[in-house]
Simulated scan of single mutants.
Amino acid sequence: MALSPFEPRRLLPRLLSLGALLCVLALALALPVPAHAVRIKEVAAVQGVRNNQLTGYGLVVGLDGTGDQTTQTPFTTQSLNAMLQQMGVTVPPGTTMQLRNVAAVMVTAVLPPFAVPGQAIDVNVSSMGNSKSLRGGTLVATPLKGADGQIYALAQGNLVVGGAGASANGSKVQINHLSAGRIPEGATVEREVATPLQQGEVLSLGLNAADFDTARQVAQAINRAKGTGTAMALDGRVVRVRMPVGAGERVAFLADIENLQLELARPAAKVVLNARTGSVVMNEAVTLGACAVAHGSLSVTINTTPQVSQPNAFGQGQTVVTQKSDISITQQGGNLVQMPAGTKLADVVKALNLLGATPQDLLAILQAMKSAGALNAELEVI
């Protein structure tokens, strides 16, 4: 099939565009990619600009018979009497109240930095007594206090409980947890927390983890972008930064330095062990020296069989049920496995997999390797 004289003209721009795209991709692949590149906002934060914890004690009303049993939780009745007295209602002394629709709860919230009066924040509500469920309840106005005892927010609203349950004739079915709920935007901020953002000529950046190299790189990156002498690393945790005078200039200044790029070196070798769940997590800097490991498992089995001891037909004894227990111990022999030295995380994982041990067993094996000097990493048990 012959091409018309116009078709080469149509193909030429497409070929040029494809060639230009291939050149751009080749240049992008040829450029070096910085390893461990992070921003300053990911490794440091302004000291004094943080969240504040708020707590309060209140009552949830409107429950469908799933509230506290007042005979076992007398503080619920006391709280209700105090609230009624504030509203002008006096309960006669000696009155026994069966409050099945009221529950005493603890209310918690997090006050974010720069929160202003009138701003709404989320609150968590948790039962303090023996309430069966908070589903469908309403939190009565509850003041939320900070660590200094001052009221910073006021919470009130309908609870959202992510669960369901039903019980009848001794049978019970429950999905998720019914003794705690959440009120989205259920509290209103009443007081502002002062921050050091507009105070003084300098601010301090606190690193998330103490590291002298990271502190030095943060100071150097700020000095390159904002001028020599702007930042100085005081130690492995704090970097002092000289700030501009104007309030708007400070916000723009912090926005600029938070987005500065850092090329961090490889972190210190560390292995984190969770003794409760058996989780083992290690970073890429972990290395392993040549060693030999023998691992064997020990299992104990207990079988209990009930036996009936019955007297003779004309005897005066009684039928007695006794328990017979058989205990057996089985120990599997562990072969001595030679583990080669590994300088990469993949080599370390491959060597540990040769043992065939469970995560719970690895807790003891890694600690023994550390004691023997074969594991080049810091162990942290959480």
Rank of each mutant, 00 (worst) to 15 (best):
A255I: 10
V300W: 01
L260F: 02
A268V: 07
T305N: 07
N312M: 12
A247Q: 06
L264C: 00
V321R: 02
S279A: 14
A268C: 05
A285P: 02
T277N: 01
E263G: 11
Q323P: 03
V271Y: 15
Q316I: 09
A269P: 15
Q307S: 04
A268K: 05
T319Q: 14
Q323N: 03
T277R: 02
V321C: 12
A268G: 10
L273E: 01
A265W: 01
L298I: 13
R276F: 02
V280C: 12
T319N: 05
V308M: 04
V238C: 13
D256S: 13
T319C: 12
I302Y: 01
L273M: 00
I257C: 01
R250M: 09
V308L: 10
V281E: 14
G317I: 01
A247N: 11
H295I: 03
V293T: 07
L298M: 04
S297M: 02
A255S: 08
G317L: 00
P244L: 03
R237E: 06
A269E: 12
S299V: 05
V320A: 04
T301A: 08
S309D: 15
V281Q: 11
G246E: 14
C291K: 10
R240M: 03
E284M: 01
D256M: 03
A269Q: 14
V321W: 12
V300K: 14
Q261N: 14
V308Q: 12
L260S: 09
N303M: 11
G248C: 09
V293E: 07
F314G: 07
H295V: 11
T322Y: 13
A247V: 09
A265L: 10
C291N: 05
P311C: 06
A269K: 12
E284Q: 13
I302V: 07
T301S: 08
R240K: 03
Q316E: 08
P267M: 10
Q261Y: 00
G236N: 07
T305Y: 10
L264I: 01
V321D: 04
L262A: 06
L254M: 14
F314S: 06
K270V: 03
I257T: 05
V281I: 15
I302W: 00
T305S: 11
V293K: 04
A265F: 00
F253Y: 15
T301Y: 04
F314Y: 02
A292C: 11
Q261D: 06
V245T: 10
P311V: 11
G278D: 11
L262D: 12
V320N: 07
Q307T: 07
V245E: 15
R242M: 08
T277C: 01
L273A: 00
R250F: 13
E258K: 05
G317R: 00
L260G: 12
A269S: 13
G296W: 00
P244F: 11
A290D: 13
N303K: 04
V271L: 03
P306H: 09
N283M: 04
